[in-house]
């Protein structure tokens, strides 16, 4: 097998894990399935698109040719994507979490509400931008890094490193900060948390913004290799959801492992001649169904058991 395929698989795994972790984390801390994750993905893609339309000429005029051009562009557009994802996360919080969180059947009702947000956003974008596909500027250039036997495209390297950095930073923050502690307390015993002065209404906001910015990151990374349209969020949403299920809802490590497996599976299926690209989705899905039939709680449960 070609070593570059490993890089390709890692690249896919990175993007999938960004989507899956966002869904998984939100389920475990707040108890809602965010169906508007795909909408967040598209919204941050489009806001990056608009921002790049503004920024690229300005930057080209002032910094073209200098060494600063790429870092400044990457930094500014990434922060636009993260910020817009976070803002959209806050909007989901206002519409689907705040009015619903202490009502009966919160899990199902928030799922429905976020689904509605997803539909509305996609249709709104269709209305205002039209169904035409858009291409975001290539942020990282077209070069390759040759390293041992690997030949890594810049955007692949940036995807893998960026994802690792973002997820690592997030996990670190979650483990060490006060908000992370309070969120874990909230997950385990909501009433006890309320008696410790932890308000779920206040603590859910940063989590939603964080998961939103993860979707934003996924959007900017995926748009390096593919085009963007208002309906582009559906497939990442479904893949993120199924991978989150595969990893066991609520388990971040499981989601990462699941993303890695699915990424490798996708690459292998694409390589086998009699299967090819068109069976990728089907095989992934069948694989996930089989794993879930054997282990209804996904891979996350498996990890917990081996740890014991």
């Amino acid at each position: 097998m070609d070593l570059n395929l490993i890089i390709y698989a890692l690249n896919l795994a990175a993007i999938y894990s960004l989507m899956a972790i966002g869904i998984s984390l939100l389920w475990s801390s707040v108890g809602m399935i965010n169906m508007a994750h795909g909408a967040t993905f598209v919204v941050s893609g489009y806001s990056t698109f608009i921002a790049s339309g503004w920024l690229v000429p300005i930057l080209k005029a002032s910094l073209a040719g200098t060494a600063f051009y790429t870092p400044v562009l990457v930094f500014s557009l990434t922060s636009v994507a993260l910020l817009s994802g976070a803002i959209f996360g806050a909007i989901i919080y206002l519409i689907a979490f705040l009015p619903l969180h202490d009502k009966p059947n919160f899990a199902i009702r928030s799922l429905i509400a976020t689904l509605a947000i997803n539909i509305a956003t996609v249709q709104f974008l269709l209305w205002s931008f039209g169904p035409r596909q858009k291409a975001l500027p290539k942020l990282f250039g077209f070069g390759r890094i040759d390293f041992l036997d690997f030949s890594i495209r810049y955007d692949q390297a940036a995807t893998i490193i960026g994802t690792l950095l973002l997820v690592g930073f997030m996990l670190l923050w979650f483990r060490n900060s006060r908000i992370g502690l309070e969120i874990r307390a909230m997950m385990q015993n909501p009433e006890g948390a309320a008696l410790s002065g932890i308000s779920i209404r206040r603590r859910a906001l940063p989590v939603m913004m964080l998961t939103g910015s993860l979707a934003g990151m996924a959007a900017i990374l995926l748009s390096q290799t593919s085009f963007f349209s208002p309906t582009a969020g559906a497939l990442p949403l479904i893949k993120g959801l199924t991978i989150a299920l595969l990893g066991g809802l609520g388990s971040v490590a499981g989601a990462m492992l699941g993303a890695l497996i699915i990424g490798i599976l996708e690459v292998i299926t694409g390589e086998i001649s009699f299967l090819g690209q068109r069976y990728v989705l089907l095989i992934q899905f069948v694989f996930i169904v089989i794993v879930l039939i054997i282990r209804p709680r996904g891979l996350g449960g498996l990890l917990d058991e081996t740890r014991k």
Binding site: L181, R184, N189, G192, A193, S196
Partner: peptide, 15 residues
């Protein structure tokens, strides 16, 4: 009524 998955120290921090 406590948080079974936290350590004693973290638990006290919650207070």
């Amino acid at each position: 009524a406590i948080f079974p998955g936290l350590t004693v120290e973290q638990h006290l921090d919650c207070g």
